[in-house]
Nucleic acid binder design. Structure first.
Lengths: 180, 180
DNA sequence: GTCTATATTTGGATAGAC
DNA sequence: GTCTATCCAAATATAGAC
């Protein structure tokens, strides 16, 4: 994980991964049939410990959106994870990238969850009437992703949690804090 | 540009770039002292034809934010450019990446421009009183960047211009279209 | 300014011993 | 399950002819 996060997929070498694992390069390839297989293994492992694992027991409605802000807050303490996903998700759009299908599915699944949560909030009358749930869902996800890149390049210039909260609040028509 | 956009920096090869340029690999390196030099050359060239070139003659206040929406709209017709920046900006956060300083400066400059535009709009009374200009600026940039990755992976699932407009409008307190 | 030729390094992957 | 040894391909970069 750390090597893919720090180097990206293509610039990561099995030699470095092996060294950090206390193995030889051949030893690593005994457990994964290829470098691409290792990457998907890393991504599958990661999946077991975060958002995608929420599944059917996720918070509902506004609580889910609040959970996204919490995730952004926790992410500020987990630079490695943030870097891994920020680098690999963008790299995955290059031709023939082994994680392309993974991220396509991840975004589709995540978008569906956010759309559903917004729909739940709308049913409870907590969302402006004309809001397009799909556009809003894409927007929330995009803000979180985009903030990560900015934050990785200049951590002191960006507050991921506060900014995510600002956008979600604005989309929901929440009055600006301290403002009119 | 096309090769770096399609492959990313590390996975792009001078051989491919040379072939697409009608040169040999040595011929390419006659004009650029290294692969890294070629990348910065591409980025500098690109800069002459878009946002960063706006400089002091940019639109002011809300007109600048409207210009960002226009940029998102035009980007939907320029997949190559979108891919180039989406891939390289994220890749640039990896250690030792040759475009890291370029993107750090680009984001800082862009953020300053958006902050200024929001300040102008605020002076004109067109912005909610409590809005944090720096957070809002980061948010707008982040939305645009994040949407690009989603759009590259699933173009039919994302409307970059409409979603950018949605977020800007929400931050400015504009009523939702068709809504209450 | 472009080429051929080549140096040099590094990459992923495989075979087979232990 | 881990190793050594090796293969083969590809990479960037340089030297020097034309």
């Amino acid at each position: 994980m750390e090597t893919f996060a720090t180097r990206g997929y293509h610039n990561a070498s099995l030699a470095e991964i092996a060294e950090r694992s206390g193995l030889t390069q051949a030893g690593v390839l005994h457990h994964f049939r290829s470098k691409a297989g290792l990457l998907t293994g890393v991504l599958d492992l990661r999946d077991q410990s975060d958002l995608a694992q929420l599944g059917e027991e996720r918070p509902r409605g506004l609580a889910f959106l609040a959970h996204l802000v919490d995730t952004a807050r926790r992410n500020a303490e987990r630079e490695g994870i943030v870097r891994l996903y920020a680098v690999l998700s963008a790299e995955s759009v290059t031709s023939g990238h082994p994680a392309q299908e993974y991220f396509r599915a991840r975004y589709a699944g995540l978008r569906a969850m956010v759309v559903e949560a917004i729909g739940e909030a709308a049913d409870a009358g907590e969302v402006p009437a004309g809001l397009d749930p799909r556009a809003a869902a894409s927007a929330v996800m995009a803000v979180m992703d985009g903030l990560q890149v900015q934050w990785l390049l200049a951590p002191e210039a960006v507050d991921m949690a506060a900014t995510t909260d600002l956008v979600i609040g604005a989309l929901l028509g929440r009055p600006v804090p301290g403002g009119g």
